[in-house]
């Protein structure tokens, strides 16, 4: 691991409710270099909240607190909303689950990607066009000149997600947060999109936080894995070593998945009472 890109200590996300405050992320700590880190967990584990908290995108009345919250030498605790807006997109980007909801339906692909660039840099129209086409090529879109003129409803889910990635990567951020980037896609397209993210991350030497519910998937596309349950990190492991997970929750998750050559008559299930989820 080279120098630290992101340091998080005792990160908490709290929402007030009628019955008092509820912590959805309960004081987690982790570091990230220019590497690929995965956060895995089931719904309600707090994994997505963690991703959003890094960008300080938790909506009020939710609160984010951390003892240490440093991104590339910048103390995120001290950043105002305005300063955060400069960081978002330019230095830290986020790819969301469903391209259908993240692309603006009334802008062409070209304008959409250009927009992402224009908010952070001033460029001439020509430079802009060139960059956009180059980026579309990088996300392996055949015939980028044609696709650039299309509107979001005219492209498939897989292509939409690639366009999202192009949009997020064109300002050349240092950290990409991908929240379930492929769960809305078909299996065959999933691999393509993940391979693409993987290649671009390596080429540009960026950091990646991959948030997913799928242990198998992250095992292939991350260096390190954090397993979260009920707002806490229950296990941290190298991805290659995931098979040897020791925490019963991780093991439970691994075993609960059916296999292609399934011979078991019954799938083992988690005993939830052990980690009384909220």
């Amino acid at each position: 691991m080279s120098q630290k890109l992101l340091e998080v200590e005792d990160l908490r996300v709290t929402f007030p409710t009628h019955q008092g405050d509820v912590e959805v992320v309960k004081g987690i700590s982790f570091d990230l270099g220019r590497e690929r880190l995965a956060i895995v967990g089931e719904s309600g584990s707090g994994k997505s909240m963690t991703g959003r908290a890094i960008l300080k995108l938790i909506r009020s009345p939710g609160r984010v607190t951390a003892k240490k919250f440093v991104f590339d030498g910048i103390d995120l605790n001290k950043q105002s909303e305005r300063q955060m807006r400069k960081l978002r997109g330019a230095r830290i980007s986020m790819v969301m689950q469903d391209p259908k909801f993240s692309l603006n339906p009334v802008l062409s692909i070209e304008d959409q990607i250009a927009e992402a660039l224009r908010t952070h840099q001033t460029l001439t129209r020509k430079e802009l066009d060139e960059k956009v086409l180059h980026m579309l090529e990088q996300v392996r879109i055949n015939d980028p000149a044609r696709v650039a003129k299309l509107y979001p409803h005219e492209v498939s889910g897989g292509m939409g997600q690639r366009i999202m990635i192009a949009m997020m990567l064109i300002p050349e951020p240092d950290l990409l947060i991908a929240d379930e980037p492929t769960s809305a896609l078909d299996v065959s397209v999933q691999a393509q999109v993940l391979d693409l993210i993987d290649n671009l991350i390596r080429e540009k030497g960026m950091g990646l936080i991959l948030i997913s519910h799928d242990l198998n998937l992250v095992a292939n596309y991350a260096d390190r894995v954090l397993v979260m349950n009920a707002g806490e990190i229950v296990e941290q492991r190298d991805a290659a070593d995931l098979q040897n997970a020791t925490h019963p929750y991780t093991q439970g998750l691994l075993n609960a998945m059916p296999r292609l050559d399934e011979t078991r008559d019954e799938l083992p299930t988690l005993d939830r009472t052990q980690w009384a989820a909220t």
Binding site: V187, Q190, A191, M257
Partner: peptide, 21 residues
């Protein structure tokens, strides 16, 4: 993984790719 059609095989490979762990 012994499908006769190439498309089925493709689907199988994509699933398998995911299930290395």
């Amino acid at each position: 993984g012994t499908f006769n059609e190439p498309y089925s095989q493709e689907l199988y490979q994509a699933s398998k790719h995911e299930h290395v762990a």
